[in-house]
Design a protein around this nucleic acid. Structure first.
Lengths: 150, 150
DNA sequence: TTAGATTAGTTAGCATCGCTAACAATATAC
DNA sequence: GTATATTGTTAGCGATGCTAACTAATCTAA
């Protein structure tokens, strides 16, 4: 077999895996009830998670982290603020808006994560340790790949 | 080590993997530009995909497949119809609405998939064959797990 | 020091997508 | 032929995404 044919084969496999992975990811996230219960939208929960684990951030940093346009993040944070899940103290540089998670924001996030994890873990409980290890390894590989190309 | 401690350990690992998997899935799907270019929303593309690969379906079947409430699917299909990506012929049972993908609907779907796959595949091209195999295997495991508990 | 450029967010307005509650139309069963 | 069950639709709310246009604050430089 020539080298170029091997290359073609590899590309085909990459595409097949990419397609299946995408489909799986979509269906995994069809867990719409994890956030419905809390009255926080998914974008709010995701932004809150970034805040809780990444310290206080400006709107611009949140926008970058969530890969969203600025007006969208303005509104997401406005919602979080209305519900007192974040607060915005007086700034030094009056252009920058620094967003801090509150204690109740941290609580909310923990509850939402618990529901999510419980849902997934219920299905994974039957996996053997070696199957679990494969999934874990795959997550690592995909995460590393994402990092290197984004 | 006692058996119950082993069980605890396994549960902890399951939860850790579940959490990381969820986070990875979220970030994988931050490919918002795959549908932006086509003027079809993600829910429309997903429903169209079900239609293309699952033959003509009724609104109720689509609703079940997409795990969405009936009014939501009514609106999604109305949008697809406006754009002529599906059509709805006269029914025998006038309660049922049978939805058929059109040729341009199939085209649209193929283009959207191409963009999605290209995006992911670009990042995965650097993976070694054995890494790719791990990811593929993991997708299989997760899919099987989903099937068995949903 | 003040005029202009840069930076950081906001406002306005549109479309999609999720939900619930209430309603209509059709088919079936008695 | 009326009662019931099945299947979708309408109305209306809130969250999330976008672009275009704008304001406010800071920085730069003549």
């Amino acid at each position: 077999m020539t080298k170029s044919k091997q290359k073609d084969q590899h590309r085909d496999r990459v595409e097949r895996v990419a397609d299946r992975l995408h489909s799986t990811a979509i269906h995994l996230l069809r867990v719409r009830r994890t956030h419905t219960a809390s009255r926080a939208g998914p974008a709010q929960l995701s932004a809150l998670s970034v805040l809780v684990f990444g310290g206080p951030l400006t709107l611009g940093q949140l926008t970058a982290a969530e890969q969203v346009n600025a007006p969208t993040m303005t509104r997401i944070v406005a919602g979080l603020r209305r519900s007192a899940w974040v607060l915005i103290p007086d700034p030094e540089d009056a252009r920058r808006v620094r967003v801090f998670p509150t204690a109740s924001g941290v609580d909310l996030l923990e509850q939402a994560q618990r529901r999510r994890i419980d849902y997934l873990a219920k299905g994974f409980a039957r996996l053997t340790p070696s199957e679990l290890a494969v999934v874990d390894k795959a997550v690592e590989i995909v995460t590393a790949a994402r990092m290197s190309w984004e």
